[in-house]
Design a protein around this nucleic acid. Structure first.
Lengths: 117, 117
DNA sequence: CGATAATGATACGGGTCCGTAACGATCTGG
DNA sequence: CCAGATCGTTACGGACCCGTATCATTATCG
């Protein structure tokens, strides 16, 4: 059974969640950073810079910079791949898992508040 | 009947939509800009800089700059309020309405693809 | 009137991100 | 072993956004 959302509900949901994200001044992630974070936490490892760049349709420096920021926030870590030292493996962190979980709660909570008329 | 979404579904939906937004290189809005755009298009007019600043919990220059960008993109317009010339009224545009509609479609389409297991 | 308040815009110094191009490090195949 | 490919990172000049403080314009009210 697919998830049924009508356009007007989708917009209300999108707005409410974004309002909350803006008001929480600590977690101001861009669309790219959000896409990267969720990809790492939802898709199976391993995650590499090149792989993420391909999935998002952006260049590698974009990923490197996003990882710098997400790493500084403690939401993600980088580790050299010892089997092929050219690669860098992106790993999850406890703080990142909490942030993702918090986002999920935010969305589900606001979904409840939206009338299904 | 409230909208029922489970956390795992919410995250998948959030990721898929953000992936699409990132891949569409034309509409790279920040969280703040998105919140402003949706507020103007979903809430009843009139919308002022001060009112938006209060709703988003940010300062007025933030709104002014966001309106500069959104105006440059053609998604919004500013007009002086003739009854009180200190105020600026934020108005919708055809391009903005289309962008909002497109976002709604994006969300509903991806919602359909997400299995309700 | 004139003083005060309110609105939105602007100036400033600092930070982040962009895309392109180049770079060093590492692997691969002849 | 070495030329070439592949990986992630960095350099660069430019654009955008931030928060604070200040500004010009307009309205209000004694």
């Amino acid at each position: 059974m697919p998830l049924e959302i009508r356009p007007s509900q989708a917009l209300k949901l999108w707005r409410q969640v974004h309002l909350d994200l803006v008001r929480d001044h600590d977690a101001d992630l861009s669309a790219r950073q959000t896409a990267i974070l969720l990809t790492v936490y939802l898709e199976l490892p391993p995650h590499t810079v090149r792989g993420l760049a391909k999935q998002l349709g952006v260049t590698k420096p974009v990923i490197t910079r996003a990882l710098d920021t997400l790493g500084k926030l403690g939401l993600l870590t980088r580790k050299r791949d010892e089997s092929d030292r050219r690669n860098v493996v992106i790993q999850r962190t406890v703080a990142g898992a909490l942030a993702v979980e918090r986002l999920a709660d935010l969305v589900t909570e606001h979904a409840k508040e939206i009338g299904g008329s």
